[in-house]
Measured scan of single mutants.
Amino acid sequence: TKVFYNGTYVEFNNPEKAKKYAEKVAKKVGGTFTEKNGQFHVE
């Protein structure tokens, strides 16, 4: 499961961990995250 952010991504074996990371990054940058095709995108 990949989490895309700012033109790069971090890959996780565990979708649950990926979601938590996406939430954390989104919170940090004051943005939101969306799930597309089983991957997370932070905006």
Rank of each mutant, 00 (worst) to 15 (best):
V42I: 14
N37P: 03
F12W: 03
V42P: 00
F33G: 01
K2L: 09
V42A: 02
T8K: 13
G31N: 03
N6Y: 10
Y21P: 01
K24L: 14
A26T: 04
K17M: 14
Y21S: 01
K19M: 09
K24C: 15
Y5H: 08
F4W: 15
V10I: 12
E23Y: 09
N13G: 10
E43Q: 12
Y21K: 00
F40P: 01
T1S: 09
G31Y: 04
A22N: 00
H41F: 15
E23N: 07
E11V: 14
N6W: 07
G38W: 03
V25S: 04
H41T: 08
E43C: 15
G30C: 15
V25E: 05
G30L: 06
T1K: 05
G30E: 05
V42S: 01
Y9Q: 06
V42K: 02
E23R: 09
Y9A: 08
G30Y: 06
T1G: 04
T8S: 12
G31A: 09
G30P: 01
P15W: 15
K19D: 02
N14I: 06
T32R: 10
G38L: 04
E23I: 11
G31V: 05
N14S: 14
F33D: 00
G30D: 05
N37S: 07
F33R: 03
K27H: 10
E35I: 12
K20D: 11
A26Q: 02
E16H: 11
E35V: 12
T34I: 14
V3Y: 01
K2W: 08
T32C: 13
E43H: 14
K36H: 09
K27F: 09
F4S: 03
A22E: 00
Y9T: 08
A22W: 02
Y5K: 02
N6L: 12
Q39C: 12
Q39Y: 09
G30R: 08
T1R: 05
T32F: 14
F33M: 11
K2V: 08
Y9S: 08
K27N: 10
V42F: 04
N13R: 12
K36P: 01
K28W: 13
V29L: 12
K17A: 15
G30M: 07
V3C: 05
T1N: 08
T32I: 12
T8G: 11
Q39L: 06
F12S: 01
T1M: 07
N14L: 07
E11L: 12
V42M: 03
N14D: 14
H41D: 04
Y21Q: 02
T32V: 11
Y5A: 04
V42Q: 01
E11K: 11
E23P: 00
K19G: 04
V29F: 11
A22T: 02
T1D: 01
V29S: 07
V42E: 00
K17V: 13
T1A: 08
V29Y: 11
A26W: 03
T32Y: 14
G7K: 06
T32P: 02
K36M: 10
N13I: 11
N14Y: 05
N13P: 13
N13V: 11
Q39T: 09
V3F: 02
E43L: 14
F4T: 03
P15Q: 10
T8P: 01
Y9F: 12
V29D: 04
F40Q: 01
T34F: 15
K36Q: 09
N37I: 04
G7R: 06
K2C: 15
K27M: 12
V29A: 06
G30F: 06
E23Q: 12
T8C: 15
P15R: 15
E23F: 08
V10S: 06
N13A: 14
Y9I: 11
Q39M: 10
A18M: 01
G30K: 08
V25P: 01
E16I: 11
Q39R: 04
K17C: 15
F33H: 03
K17Y: 11
E11F: 11
E43K: 10
Y21A: 03
K20Y: 09
E16T: 11
K2G: 08
V42D: 01
N6S: 07
E11M: 13
E16K: 11
E11T: 14
K20H: 10
A26R: 02
F12C: 11
K27I: 10
G31T: 07
K20I: 12
E23W: 08
E16F: 10
Y9P: 04
N14C: 13
Y21F: 13
T32H: 10
T1Q: 05
K17W: 11
V10G: 02
F12L: 04
N6V: 04
V25D: 00
N13S: 14
E35H: 07
K2D: 00
G31M: 06
F4H: 06
T8N: 10
G31Q: 04
